[in-house]
Each structure stands twice: as C-alpha cells, then as structure tokens.
Amino acid sequence: MIVYLLCLLLFCVGLYCILRKRNIIKIIVGVIIAEYAVNLLFILVAYRRGGRAPLHSPDAVIENMVDALPQALVLTSIVISLASTALLIAIAMRIYQKYRTFDITKIRELRG
C-alpha cells in the first residue's frame, strides 16, 4: 500500500511543480514528473508478489508472472509523453525567442 501512496505523492510533487513554479522549463519538468508518476503507478498495479518478468522462452515454466499488459500500455503512454513533451519544449523555445524570458509572470498578453 505504501508504494501506491508514495507514487501518488510523486504525482502531487509534479502537480505542485506545475501549479507553483514560474519558470516554463520547471513547469515542463513538473509535467514530466507527473507523467512518470502515473506510469510508475500503472507498473506497480501490475505487480504480483514474488512475480517475475513476463518473458516467455522455450524452456520456461509459466508460473507467477507479473501482469504483462500494463507494461505494453505504459510503453504506449511513454510514447505519448514523448510527443507532448517534445511539443511543449518546442513551444517553450519559441516563447523564449519571442519574449526573451522563461518567467510566466512576464508572459502575459492574454487576460480577461
């Protein structure tokens, strides 16, 4: 149980980073931490006590494997995070080019 709570704590660290930090790069890092926490939670959910890696080889006896499905799904979710992170970084670089700053309190053209 404690690992799940730690995982949620990590997620909250990411959220804190997104909500409270003023630097765009730190916000992106917050997003990455939160994504990582969710992926970790997914892997932990699939864990079985004493389970081994879900590999299948010709001479292996299949017993007590961890759940293999979330591992495939987490790979997909990592690819998605890669895409969104790359896009965020590209937008951040463009923002820096236009505004010459990473501070979001100074990047405020849109109000109301």
Binding site: A86, I89, A90, M93, R94, Q97
Partner: peptide, 12 residues
C-alpha cells in the same frame, strides 16, 4: 524532433 530542436536554436 531532435534535429528540429537543435537547429531551431541556431536559427534563433
């Protein structure tokens, strides 16, 4: 992606 991010800074 890597090339785009790297080359962008040069353009800048």
């Amino acid at each position: 992606i890597f090339v785009a991010l790297i080359l962008f800074r040069f353009d800048d």
